[in-house]
């Protein structure tokens, strides 16, 4: 595949995976949690690197997974001391992120891992770092990792579809029916961590939040059905990725920045034109009192 092809495929996978996970982040009112985990997985990556001295897929995934779970557990734990959730998130993620930054600066500073890269990502370099897979041949490592994570996320969403729905809508009822609400919460946090770390190389820690939240928030404006919201959100993610790439090529700027900007455009269009929740829709057909 061409250089451009790999970049667009990788960006689309980021948009698709983040779009799916983002739907539940929005419905569980956990957008801030995405922000937290997108930063703390850096600590997981750094520690994985310190232990294995390698920066490849499986180690990074495991490191990020553990860091994401640690974040979720610490936030849950602080809340048992009557600390507000938003404050708990703020305390935990800045602390863990800071440790990651300090470790990069003191112990692992080199060409492969730096703070700038972790925050902004660099999708243009992705096609240079390939691995050879049986049958398909050379594939960029980041792309291969995203494909795996996409299927993991899709698998868990489909298998536990009704459990995600009920624990998002009414956790008290779910608990009274015997569904392990807290376990589902940690499983979900694990999926967010995996998605984030897989998207890291491409878009970095800051832009991944845009990819997680904005397509899902846009999809929310178009539909009243969860399954359609998932499809729309994934599609919006892919559209934003492709739109972002050509925008970047056109005005010669950062691809990840343009992708995040494109999600903003998709949201703006939804916000204005959505038939039920949009500005124009509300103007034409005022909400009944």
């Amino acid at each position: 595949m061409s250089y451009t092809g790999w970049i667009i495929l990788t960006a689309s996978l980021v948009g698709l995976t983040c779009g799916l996970i983002g739907v539940f982040l929005i419905l569980r009112k956990m957008a801030m949690m995405a922000d937290a985990i997108s930063h703390t997985v850096l600590l997981g990556i750094v520690i994985a690197y310190l232990i294995t001295n390698e920066l490849n897929g499986p180690h990074m995934l495991v490191g990020a997974l553990l860091a994401g779970l640690l974040t979720a557990v610490l936030i849950q734990w602080l809340q048992t001391f009557n600390i507000q959730q938003d404050a708990a998130i703020g305390i935990v993620f800045t602390t863990l992120f800071a440790i990651g930054v300090v470790l990069i600066a003191t112990s692992v500073g080199n060409a492969h891992l730096d703070v700038q890269h972790a925050l902004m990502g660099e999708i243009t370099f992705i096609p240079f770092n390939t691995i050879t897979l049986p049958l398909v041949g050379n594939v960029p490592q980041a792309t291969a990792m995203l494909i795996i994570v996409f299927f993991i996320v899709l698998f868990f969403i489909l298998v536990f579809y009704k459990e995600w729905k009920i624990t998002s809508f009414d956790p008290a009822l779910a608990a009274s029916l015997g569904i392990p609400v807290l376990l589902m919460h940690y499983l979900f946090m694990s999926l967010v961590s995996l998605t984030t770390v897989a998207s890291f190389d491409a878009v970095g820690a800051i832009m991944v939040v845009a990819m997680l939240i904005t397509p899902a928030a846009s999809a929310y404006l178009w539909t009243d059905k969860l399954s359609i919201m998932l499809v729309l959100s994934g599609s919006f993610g892919v559209i934003s990725a492709i739109l972002g790439y050509y925008l970047a090529a056109w005005i010669d700027t950062s691809i990840s920045g343009s992708m995040a900007f494109a999600t903003g455009i998709v949201f703006l269009v939804s916000f204005i034109f959505s038939p039920t929740h949009g500005l124009i829709g509300k103007y034409i057909k005022p909400v009944k009192g």
Binding site: K162, F169, D170, L177, G178, L226
Partner: peptide, 24 residues
């Protein structure tokens, strides 16, 4: 639960909410 304990903007319909009672 109290009616106010859930988000009624959740993308679902009445039949679906009732079906949730059977998830267990």
């Amino acid at each position: 639960p109290q009616r106010g304990s859930v988000d009624w903007e959740f993308p679902t319909n009445a039949l679906d909410v009732v079906t949730m009672g059977l998830y267990g």
